[in-house]
C-alpha cells in the first residue's frame, strides 16, 4: 500500500542527505588532502600530486571498466590476472618472441609498441568476452565466473612466460608509462582521456542508457525490449579492454611484464568504484565518482606513506573503507526506498 503517497510536484527543499550522498566522496577527498597538507606540507607539491595520479592511473583505468560491470550489478575479480597475462603477451610481441626476453633497451628488436598494445587489448577483450559468455549463456553468477577466471588467467600468464619476467623495451614503448606530456605523466593523460570518453558513453549515448536500465531492473529492461544478455556481455568486454590497456601501460611504466603483476588489483579497483558511489546493487553510479574514488585511495595511500605508516596498516585501512562505503550505499538505498 506504499502507493498511497502524495505527489510532490514542487521541487523538494534542500535535501542534506541527498547532497551528502552525492558529493560525499569529493568532500572526503578534499578534507583528506587538507589534513595531509597540514601534517606534511610536501604533500601538496606538484611533483607529489602528479606522482599520486600516476600511481592511481593503472588501477584507475581498470576502475573505469569496473564501473560498467558494477552498474549492471556484476563484478569482475579476474582483472589482475587478466592484466598479467595481457601484459606478458604484449611484452612478447614487443620483443618479437620469448627468446631474448632479458635483452634490455634499444637492442631489442620486435614488432613495436603499436602491435604490443593491440595484442594486450585483444587478449583483454577475448578474456572479458569469454567470461561474459559464461555469465549470460551458462547462467553462472559473475562472482563465480570471474573467480574462476582469476585462476585461469593467472595460470595462463605463468604458463606463457614459464614463470619469468619479460623486460627491456624500446623507448617508444616505455614512453607510454614513463614519459611526460608537458608536466603531466603520460599514464595520467591516458587515464583521464579514457575517463572522459567513458563518461560520455555512459551519460550521453543509447548504450549508456541501456547499461543503467539493465542494472536498475533487468526484468523491466527485458520487458522494455532491451537485449539484456547482450548488454551484460558487453560490459565484460569493456572491462577486458581496460584490463588490456592497463596491462600495456603498466608494462611500459615498469619496463617489464611479469606473471605476478596485478595481484590484488581487484580489491583496489572495486574499492575505487564503490567508494566513488557506484552501487553494488546496480543502476546507480558514474565514472566521475569512480575517478574521485580512485584518487581518494591514491591520496590515502600516498599520505600514509609520507607519514611513514606501515604498508600493512594501509591494507587494513583500505579493507575497512570498502566495507564502510558499501554500508553507506546500503543505508542510502534503504532511505531511497522509504523516501
Amino acid at each position: 500500500m506504499a502507493d498511497v503517497k502524495r505527489d510532490t510536484p514542487a521541487a523538494p527543499g534542500f535535501d542534506l542527505f541527498g547532497f551528502l550522498a552525492r558529493f560525499a566522496p569529493l568532500i572526503f577527498l578534499v578534507v583528506l588532502m587538507a589534513v595531509f597538507y597540514l601534517l606534511e606540507p610536501r604533500f601538496l607539491s606538484q611533483v607529489n600530486l602528479f606522482n599520486v595520479m600516476r600511481q592511481v592511473s593503472i588501477t584507475g583505468l581498470l576502475a573505469i571498466g569496473m564501473t560498467f560491470v558494477i552498474l549492471t550489478a556484476g563484478i569482475d575479480l579476474s582483472i589482475g590476472s587478466l592484466l598479467a597475462f595481457a601484459g606478458l603477451v604484449a611484452a612478447a610481441v614487443a620483443k618479437g618472441g620469448l627468446q631474448d626476453r632479458f635483452t634490455v633497451g634499444e637492442d631489442a628488436v620486435g614488432y613495436g609498441w603499436q602491435l604490443a598494445a593491440l595484442a594486450a587489448i585483444a587478449i583483454g577483450i577475448a578474456g572479458g568476452w569469454l567470461q561474459g559468455v559464461a555469465i549470460t549463456r551458462l547462467k553462472v553468477p559473475p562472482f563465480v565466473v570471474t573467480l574462476g577466471g582469476m585462476s585461469v588467467f593467472r595460470g595462463a600468464a605463468l604458463l606463457f612466460a614459464a614463470g619469468g619476467p619479460i623486460s627491456g623495451f624500446d623507448r617508444a614503448f616505455t614512453w607510454w608509462g614513463q614519459g611526460y606530456i608537458g608536466p603531466v605523466p603520460v599514464p595520467v593523460v591516458v587515464f583521464l582521456v579514457a575517463a572522459v570518453i567513458a563518461h560520455i558513453v555512459l551519460r550521453y549515448t543509447r548504450y549508456g542508457r541501456k547499461v543503467y536500465a539493465v542494472g536498475g531492473n533487468p526484468e523491466a529492461a527485458r520487458l522494455a525490449g532491451l537485449n539484456v544478455n547482450r548488454i551484460i556481455l558487453s560490459v565484460y568486454v569493456i572491462m577486458g579492454f581496460f584490463a588490456g590497456l592497463g596491462a600495456f601501460v603498466l608494462a611500459a611504466r615498469l619496463n617489464s611484464a611479469e606473471a605476478v603483476a596485478g595481484t590484488g588489483y581487484e580489491l583496489t579497483v572495486i574499492a575505487s568504484v564503490v567508494i566513488g558511489g557506484t552501487s553494488l546493487f546496480g543502476g546507480v553510479g558514474s565514472v566521475f565518482g569512480t575517478v574521485i574514488g580512485a584518487l581518494l585511495i591514491g591520496v590515502l595511500l600516498n599520505g600514509l606513506v609520507l607519514m611513514n605508516v606501515s604498508s600493512y596498516i594501509q591494507q587494513i585501512i583500505i579493507g575497512v573503507i570498502i566495507v564502510l562505503a558499501v554500508a553507506f550505499d546500503t543505508f542510502a538505498k534503504s532511505r531511497r526506498r522509504r523516501a
Partner: peptide, 27 residues
C-alpha cells in the same frame, strides 16, 4: 516496469530511443 533508482526521463524514453537519438548513437 520501472527503474526506480533512475530518473523519469530514462524511464519514459527507454523503449523509444529511436525517436530521440542522434547518429543512432547519442541521445
Amino acid at each position: 516496469a520501472l527503474f526506480l533508482s533512475l530518473a523519469i526521463r530514462t524511464n519514459l524514453s527507454i523503449a523509444a530511443l529511436d525517436r530521440i537519438d542522434r547518429f543512432g548513437i547519442f541521445i
